[in-house]
């Protein structure tokens, strides 16, 4: 494990903690896309199938359990928690995320590493994660006043995969490890989708104003 990989995992963990903090502290999920949260829950459920079959390390198991349980807890909160669910912008969160699931599944059927159930589902989770943030970014453009915790959550969520890309670059040059092209391409696409947000996040940080995405 290299520093980029560890920093990526910690950044991902911080993004989850920020979202849980926002929902717990404000008892509200305003500005959060339920659809993105559902897509992420699906990403973790299909990627960590080996949770009970292959033990890799304590760290690996603990992180997988954290990501699966937190994503399911957030989806449950936004759907069923009596207080939180009232603040969900149902009429603003209208991205057709079912198409993202269908598209990713078709991609996984055509382009898996190996044509086995596990590998197809793994490829599906990688392709789906690359586009899972789209409903959230669209919602962010529609909601004018988004609280800082939400923007920090999105910033850390976008940064984690960028750090993974650095991890693959680092391993390519130091371990001559080519990595997996599915991870490379999806990780790059995922990070590129955030570039626009990163730009406005940086601008808002420099001018210490609230983050505003152009309409």
């Amino acid at each position: 494990m290299n520093i980029f990989r560890f920093a990526g995992d910690m950044t991902h963990l911080v993004s989850v903690l920020l979202l849980l903090l926002k929902i717990y502290a404000t008892k509200s999920c305003s500005g959060i896309s339920l659809k993105t949260q559902e897509l992420y829950a699906l990403v973790f459920l299909t990627r960590y199938l080996d949770l009970f079959t292959d033990f890799i390390s304590i760290y690996n198991t603990v992180m997988k359990v954290i990501f699966i349980t937190s994503s399911l807890a957030i989806v449950w909160c936004m759907r069923a928690h009596p207080t939180v669910r009232r603040s969900y912008d149902r009429d603003q969160d209208t991205f057709r995320h079912h198409f993202l699931v269908l598209l990713s599944f078709i991609m996984a059927l055509f382009f898996p590493d190996l044509f086995t159930t596990r590998e197809v589902l793994w490829a599906f989770s990688i392709y789906l994660e690359a586009v899972a943030i789209l409903p959230q970014l669209v919602l962010l453009q529609r909601c004018r006043n988004v609280d800082n915790l939400t923007t920090h959550y999105i910033f850390f969520l976008g940064s984690y995969r960028a750090l993974y890309v650095l991890n693959w670059i680092y391993r390519y040059f130091t371990e001559k490890h080519a990595g997996r092209w599915i991870s490379w391409i999806s990780g790059l696409v995922q990070t590129v989708l955030y570039l626009d947000f990163f730009y406005y996040y940086f601008i808002s940080w420099k001018s210490s104003e609230k983050l505003r995405l152009p309409a």
């Binding site: 494990m1 990989r5 995992d9 991902h12 080996d50 292959d54 890799i56 390390s57 690996n60 992180m63 997988k64 990501f67 590493d113 190996l114 590998e119 793994w122 993974y164 391993r171 371990e175 490890h177 990595g179 997996r180 991870s183």
Partner: peptide, 10 residues
């Protein structure tokens, strides 16, 4: 195929 070194990636 999934060589072991990427297996531990999250």
């Amino acid at each position: 195929a999934q060589d072991d070194s990427t297996k531990d990636e999250l």
